[in-house]
Design a protein around this nucleic acid. Structure first.
Length: 588
DNA sequence: GCCGTTTTCGGCCCGACTGTTTTCAGTCG
């Protein structure tokens, strides 16, 4: 049973309740529970078995019972009963933009429509326009929304959306009268994917901005427009919302449009308890006087809180932590002193020379760089003989560079299907930095994969477990494995887990980082560069780490080189002097 | 259905825009 299935079940119940006109707060309760389960880094079945579901925020007795029943039996009574009331095709109508529960229920009950195709046909034939509060324009909007629904691609990875956001913000800043422009939303929270762009502008002349916006390059469709708001679609398919507010409201608007929704609701509820009202225009007291709004930190202060970094604003306990003075001092990109996973042209899929990597790393301010090329099981990977030659080259280059930056001799060694390492213990024990990763046989059971990883961690030769879940955002799911078990063994063995900063990987995820920290496991943030340009990707890893509540002290590559070496020496049990020559990279 | 700096019952964030309406319901974020 995957957490995603539970999330889908809770979401389906929420949809069905909406379609049957249930209490909207009950609907919200299910949606909130779905969101909480969605951000859970551990299998929900574990919580079920330990009877700990109730400890999740937003999950009460009823929902816990539904989840438990669903996990045990694959379905639950409430879901089945609701499904019996609503034809399945009606559910899909909710996925059409501008069609909500009221419209879907209306067309189902009045016209008997139970599929997207039937809805489209009714809109085209004019039947739809005969319904109350329906007309020609609604029908037209629904026809085009159906077309978009059929060609829809889901959320966009952050790194793909960023350039569009930066370009639009720069163009907005150039419009006369604009004081400030910024991209808010999940992009500012550095979520790994974004659904749309939320741009925010403060200006003394809002109409000028709103009218100029749809004419900007890259904009193809104007979806909605009012005096302070405009929604457009870009040629690449991204939807962009623009809001223009007066400067005295900019901080409140920035807070509001940064979200998340759950965070906003929590903050506004807190404000209500203090007799205050929070909107995008400011914080207002009982008499309607604005007491904050120009700066974001003033909004927080008005409700008795310190400023909370955007990455933490997911409605998952940040307000409570802030109120208790327990907010973490989040790691910053500047805290990173080195990069512990970098491929040179000695890897078949990489292209930069040692010198190119070193120069680029120097440019990014890194003081050390571990060269970690692939081991022999990868195509053209290094066997022991070639690795030794390569090490000589790295050490020679390191001397030439005189610490600008330091080069560490490393390897990204494959974890073979049986959990042994792809190179012998003797050569591995000579290296400064051993990253061990799974690159093959992703289709093992969770038990087998966990055992495979545990055996590698137990070898006494590994410093870092590379891209632990193996996922590729949007193209490959993580392989199943028991994160809690891996964390337990990693802590015992002193092995760090990697936050792989490749924008398509971001592996570990934010919530898994948080679990690792709670489990007492150290992390490293590595670029996994296959080209000198990619060394800059480290910032994506820092964003993930920040979303995982990590501080500089949780991340090993914030250490100086000498501190790092000391740490690695402590964590490794097999050193060249103690190696006895038994077996290739196996635990004793 | 959840939850407690008024509450174990009675609340539950707030506003913009559209289309179809002469005042507002529905959707969205």
């Amino acid at each position: 049973m995957e957490n995603a299935e539970v999330v889908a079940m809770l979401g389906e119940i929420a949809d069905l309740l909406e379609l049957t006109n249930e209490n909207p707060f009950k609907v919200r309760a299910y949606r909130r529970a779905a969101q909480v389960v969605d951000t859970l880094p551990v299998p929900i079945s574990e919580l079920v078995h330990k009877g700990e579901l109730g400890s999740l925020p937003g999950v009460g007795d009823h929902t816990a019972e539904r989840i438990a029943q669903f996990v045990e039996s694959g379905t639950c009574d409430v879901l089945e009963r609701l499904r019996g009331k609503v034809p399945p095709g009606v559910m899909e109508l909710l996925r059409i933009e501008s069609v909500g529960p009221k419209t879907a229920a209306l067309v189902w009950k009045e016209l008997g429509l139970t599929s997207v195709d039937a809805l489209e046909e009714a809109a085209l034939s004019g039947r739809l326009a005969t319904l109350p509060r329906m007309g020609a324009k609604r029908a037209e909007a629904i026809v085009s929304a159906v077309a978009r629904h059929r060609s829809r691609q889901g959320r966009v990875p952050l790194h793909r959306a960023l350039p569009y956001a930066e370009d639009l913000v720069a163009r907005l800043r150039a419009i006369p009268g604009v004081k400030q422009a910024i991209a808010a939303g999940s992009l500012r929270r550095h979520k790994e994917t974004v659904g749309d762009l939320d741009l925010l502008v403060s200006s003394t002349d809002p109409e000028r901005v709103v009218s100029a916006f749809p004419k900007l390059p890259g904009v193809t469709t104007l979806l909605a427009q009012g005096p302070t708001k405009s929604t457009v679609r870009l040629s690449v398919g991204l939807q962009v919302d623009l809001r223009v507010l007066p400067p005295e409201s900019f901080g409140a608007a920035l807070h509001y449009f940064t979200g998340s929704k759950a965070h906003n609701i929590a903050l506004r509820t807190r404000a209500l308890h203090r007799g205050l009202k929070v909107s995008e225009y400011g914080v207002f007291d009982a008499k309607g006087r604005r007491i904050a709004g120009e700066r974001e930190e003033d909004v927080f202060r008005a409700v008795g809180l310190p400023w909370i970094p955007p990455e933490l604003r997911e409605g998952l306990g940040e307000l409570e932590a802030a109120a208790a003075g327990r907010l973490p001092t989040l790691i910053e990109e500047e805290d990173l002193r080195g990069d512990l996973h970098v491929h040179s042209e000695a890897s078949a899929d990489a292209s930069s020379s040692l010198l190119e990597l070193a120069s680029a790393a120097r440019g990014f301010g890194r003081s050390y760089l571990a060269i970690t090329d692939h081991s022999r099981s990868r195509p053209l990977g290094l066997d022991e003989a070639r690795l030794r030659e390569h090490l000589d080259t790295i050490r020679w280059m390191d001397r030439e560079l005189r610490g600008r930056p330091h080069l560490l001799a490393g390897i990204e060694v494959d974890i073979l299907p049986d959990g042994s390492l792809d190179l012998g213990a003797e050569v591995l024990s000579e290296l400064d930095c051993v990253v061990a990763s799974v690159h093959s046989r992703f289709n093992m059971s969770s038990e087998e994969m966990t055992e495979r990883m545990v055996r590698a961690l137990r070898s006494g030769l590994v410093h870092v477990l590379g891209h632990p879940s193996g996922r590729l955002i949007g193209s490959r799911d993580p392989y199943p494995y028991d994160l809690e078990r891996v964390l337990e063994v990693a802590r015992e063995e002193g092995v760090a887990l990697e936050v792989n900063a490749q924008p398509e990987r971001l592996d570990l995820t934010d919530s898994a980082c948080q679990r690792a920290k709670e489990a007492g496991v150290k992390l490293v943030i590595s670029s996994d560069s296959h080209n000198a340009q990619h060394l800059d990707d480290l910032r994506h890893g820092v964003w993930v780490a920040r979303r995982g509540w990590l501080e500089a002290g949780d991340v090993l590559n914030t250490l100086s080189l000498s501190e790092l070496r000391r740490h690695f020496r402590r964590s490794r049990r097999v050193s060249p002097s103690t190696w006895t020559g038994e077996g290739p990279g196996l635990a004793p």
